[in-house]
Amino acid sequence: MSDDARTYDAGRIHVIEGLEAIRKRPGMYVGSTSQRGLHQMVYEALSPAVHGVLKRGAGSVDVTLTSDGGVRVADDGPGVPFESAGDTAAPGLEARLTRVYAGWELGGSRVVRLDLFGVGLSTVNALSSRLTAEVRREGVREIQEYARGVALAPPLPAGPATGSGTTLAFWPDAGLFETTECSYDVLAERFRDLAFLNRGLRMTLTDERPPGGAGTERFEGGVRDFVACLETDAGNAPVHPDILSFEVEDPRMAGSVEVALRWSDSGEQVVRSFANSRRTHEGGEHVEGFRAGLAAALTAYARERRLLTAADPDLAADRVGEGLTAVLSVKLDRPEFHGATRTLLAGAEVRSCVEEAVRVRVGAWLERHPEQASAVVHRIVGGAGRG
């Protein structure tokens, strides 16, 4: 045994806390020091902005990739005060920027979660070479500047304010990331998804970087628009004119499910699933419930119309999914996931509630629209579905 091993004691333990820990291991907090981690920084800054405007029912969030390599996230929400107003209030903006895990509202809020591990704005501040925070509230504008997570001065008045909102401008630390250049296309796709999934949310993405920049795109709409956009991207021709859509609130899963779907002439299926506006790439219980409910509704309709005989098996989920374009979004008070990355949704009650909602609503749509139902069911039962 070496002398070093024999003399190991508490004096050799180095405790790293707060923002120092984030800067020491940035990949642990944003997933990577590559461009993927850089984009995650943008999402971390975006989460509270989106949540703030949606609490008001509607609003705008504008993201700008600035010509000097920075990112600016501005919202027209109520404006987050730098200091909390009383012991029971949520932490103020300064606390959110300097304290790990500060600022998230828990329980019943159905927060739009774009952050990776719940660390929030402190991650953005810690991993930026500089950051400027601006608050417009009650007719006053205040500004505070930071360098590598450390405040350079207290918040300072900067004149009168028109309207309200919060703006964060930050410059990712080039010493911590492999690149500090965001991908316009990657961010645009994510922002488009957010606007589609949250009615009333308007988002813009502006690129001011040389040469010339890519201009500005605006995103807004709903899940029906989302399905139409996915169909256009894939070049699919719809089998029926209407996009079926519905939203159901269910206290048994402490949340809601929203669905939009339509079948096309393609043999491929495109199903995008989300939980609290986060893409669930691996699927989960909500997806299983959706597929089961869809198969049950179509099987019941086909048997009632004698398109399936008593000897025919029920329609399987993969069979009814051929040519399907669908968006499935659940918003839950207490979402549960398998794994830390939250891309596989858990919860048996979510599955049963989604399955019931889909079975009942799709079944009712088939009954109310016999011509469109006939086109869908005949395609599945008698045509492409049989392979």
Results as ranks from 00 to 15, higher is better:
L197M: 03
F191I: 06
C229K: 06
D225S: 13
G213P: 11
F246M: 02
L205R: 09
F191L: 15
T216C: 13
F219L: 06
G200T: 03
P238S: 00
R192K: 14
T232M: 04
E217L: 14
M203V: 15
V248M: 00
R192M: 06
P210E: 15
D193M: 04
T216V: 14
A188Y: 06
D242G: 08
L244I: 12
M203H: 13
A214F: 11
T216N: 10
A234T: 05
V223M: 01
T232S: 07
V239L: 14
E220M: 07
A228G: 10
E220G: 08
H240E: 00
S245L: 05
G200R: 05
R199K: 14
H240M: 04
F226M: 06
F219N: 03
T206G: 12
A195G: 03
F246K: 02
G221A: 02
L187H: 01
C229N: 12
V223W: 00
V227E: 04
T204D: 09
G235Q: 01
R209Q: 13
R190L: 08
R209F: 07
P211E: 10
S245Q: 10
R218H: 14
T206F: 14
D233P: 02
E217S: 08
L201A: 05
T206W: 11
R202W: 10
P210Y: 13
D193N: 11
G213F: 11
V223Y: 01
E217I: 07
V248K: 07
